[in-house]
Design a protein around this nucleic acid. Structure first.
Lengths: 253, 253
DNA sequence: TTGTCTGTGCCATTATATGCAACAATTACT
DNA sequence: AGTAATTGTTGCATATAATGGCACAGACAA
């Protein structure tokens, strides 16, 4: 059964979801604010928000009347995560990686031309709070895992994926397609991806891809740290750790 | 600004969300399966699923054609969690509670007549995987946190909330409204809620409510363990730990 | 008070989602 | 193999239902 019908069939649903996604950028939001931002009529937005509220996707502050995200989205995300067994497999190993490296470890999965961060494990030493990064997205050309995944593809597959222009996020971001190819060649040779402050200034990352038995990348592991704690030598050490556990995890995928 | 308009204004959106929620129970799902379960026409369901797919709320397996949840719901849930600062405040304390108690600690928040589990922290000894419970919901009358929250309310507030009949999940679940009142009186006196295998057979929980400066319950902490590790004495110890940290957390709410 | 925000309610018009049938592509069965 | 019963997908006319426009009520500031 082939399937290529990625089309918007129900415009009202598309619009409603776009309204819902406004809340990712900012919370709380009011009816008027959204209607202006999206160029819709207030009554229209009001109807959408009311319905989302009745379905628990939004909550409304009784005093201000403004809306924020509700718990239904949380329940959906649990169901999603339950379905991704890469989390279950990788997290125990991530704990050990975090201890060996002494830095934060991320698990991400490729989706389209982006990677989505699924899990974050902090070393015991860093008593940081919960993984806020979880659920965040980033373009592939400026992340360590993204590069590692891209490096494992054929040129044709890459061209298919990287249709959008390479956006710059810092002054280090690679924006030239040819330069990226050279970087990916290097990535493939040394067996790890490196993000040298290309997404966030002051943060460096080392990453590897996690592939299934067919060789298809299903996710990636990365170690992230402030550049001051990421010397040339540390990078080599981290890459060695990641590649060691990569094999362990891939055996179980 | 008053706000009481909790009405469904856009039926097609309600229907679409109901379709989406089918995936919480089971994944993957096909067009036909959903259309039968919901009494809708196949083309209708197909249009809904296609739109969700185009918006990244669903993914489709290229081979089987069946659908599963997509990463957009994950991004939304991150935004939701970011907004709930009770997580940020409580998680560091939960780590310490987990170590002291040697058992799993949950953070949940009340929503309507249910509690929604936000975070789970495991003790170092238990090398369990990620918090799958996160996002799950449970009725108040059969959970330790739920009872602790109910015990802090007036009888009128409780009657308003507990309109639905008290469903039984195990043979221990309290289903009689009068008996629940007695249990809640006891809960208030001893300063902690107890779930004595009332939700899941073999699992006992001790829980307390977390209230803001106005005394309104904003969440709850609970320690959960198999009944064999939950002796009378352990319950008292756990309750003491929880109440100790409860004060610390409430100061920061 | 007055002016200007907010979210909410109403209603006619028309844009749009739906119901239905037929299609194509798998899988299961004989 | 060959046939039957699945599956997801497509197109189209009709009628439902979302929209656009305006008016309203309460909150807040000047």
């Amino acid at each position: 059964m082939k399937s290529e019908g990625t089309e918007i069939k129900i415009k009202s649903l598309q619009k409603a979801l776009q309204v819902l996604e406004c809340f990712v950028e900012k919370q709380p939001l009011g009816v008027t604010e959204i209607s202006e931002k999206m160029g819709l009529y207030k009554s229209n937005v009001h109807n959408i928000l009311s319905t989302f509220k009745a379905m628990d996707y939004l909550e409304q502050d009784p005093d201000s009347g403004k809306f924020r995200l509700g718990t239904a989205v949380f329940t959906l995300s649990r169901a999603l995560r339950e379905n991704l067994d890469i989390s279950r497999i990788a997290v125990p190993f991530m704990r050990r990686i975090a201890e060996e490296a002494g830095e934060v470890v991320y698990l991400s999965i490729p989706r389209g031309e982006e990677v989505v961060y699924l899990e974050a494990v902090y070393p015991e030493a860093q008593k940081l709070s919960g993984s806020i990064v979880t659920g965040e997205r980033a373009r592939m050309h400026c992340t360590s895992v993204g590069k590692a995944i891209l490096a494992g593809m054929s040129r044709a597959e890459r061209d298919e994926l990287l249709k959008e222009p390479l956006e710059a996020f810092t002054e280090n971001t690679i924006t030239d397609r040819g330069e990226l190819e050279k970087e990916l060649k290097l990535t493939a040779e040394r067996q790890y991806g490196l993000d040298d402050m290309e997404l966030m200034f002051g943060i460096k990352c080392v990453g590897v891809a996690l592939c299934n038995h067919e060789g298809k990348p299903e996710g990636g592991l990365s170690i992230s740290a402030p550049s001051l704690r990421m010397s040339e030598e540390k990078i080599r050490v981290f890459a060695e750790i990641l590649n060691r556990y990569k094999l362990e995890i891939q055996k179980r995928l």
